[in-house]
Amino acid sequence: MSATLPPNFRRPLLLVLAIALLLGSATAWWLGGESSSKFAAAAMGRIGLVLAALWLAWPSLRRPARWFPPAVAVIGVVSLMVLAAQPRLIFAVVPAAATLISITMMVRGFRGPPKR
């Protein structure tokens, strides 16, 4: 038996995830005592803020996202979350994301236009 998802579940899901990460960040910050809990709280807070920004920008992001294959949006969001968690990884994440997006666009070009 497969569960059917409502057509507009992504924006509310972004909001729920952003709130959960921000609350988890605040909890880890105040209840944790070690430096590792502070690092985890900071990373969760940054990722929560990125997801909250995506939630706010969702209506304007829907149209350009249709131009690209679905994997491009996923690569972009994952790259943003990795950079929010650890900004020093920018020199590894940007080339990796660009390579993955290029490969995805080439595969789409070889397949031809999507069937409707």
Rank of each mutant, 00 (worst) to 15 (best):
S2H: 12
S2P: 04
A3K: 05
A3P: 01
A3S: 06
L5Y: 07
P6V: 15
R10N: 09
R10P: 02
L15Q: 05
L15A: 09
V16P: 02
V16W: 06
A20Y: 02
L22V: 05
L22Q: 12
A28M: 10
A28L: 14
W29L: 13
W29P: 00
W30C: 01
G33Q: 10
E34V: 04
S35C: 01
A41H: 06
G45K: 03
G48I: 01
L49Y: 02
L51N: 05
L51K: 03
A53N: 06
L54H: 03
L54E: 08
W55S: 05
A65F: 04
W67Q: 13
F68D: 11
P69N: 11
P69Y: 05
I75V: 13
I75Q: 03
I75G: 02
I75S: 05
V77C: 09
V78N: 01
M81L: 09
M81Y: 00
V82S: 01
V82I: 11
L83N: 03
L83R: 00
A84T: 04
A84G: 15
A84W: 00
A85N: 04
R88I: 06
I90N: 06
A92Q: 04
V94R: 03
V94D: 14
P95T: 01
P95G: 05
A98I: 10
I101T: 13
I103A: 15
M106Y: 15
R108V: 00
F110D: 08
G112V: 04
P114W: 02
K115Y: 07
K115G: 11
R116C: 10
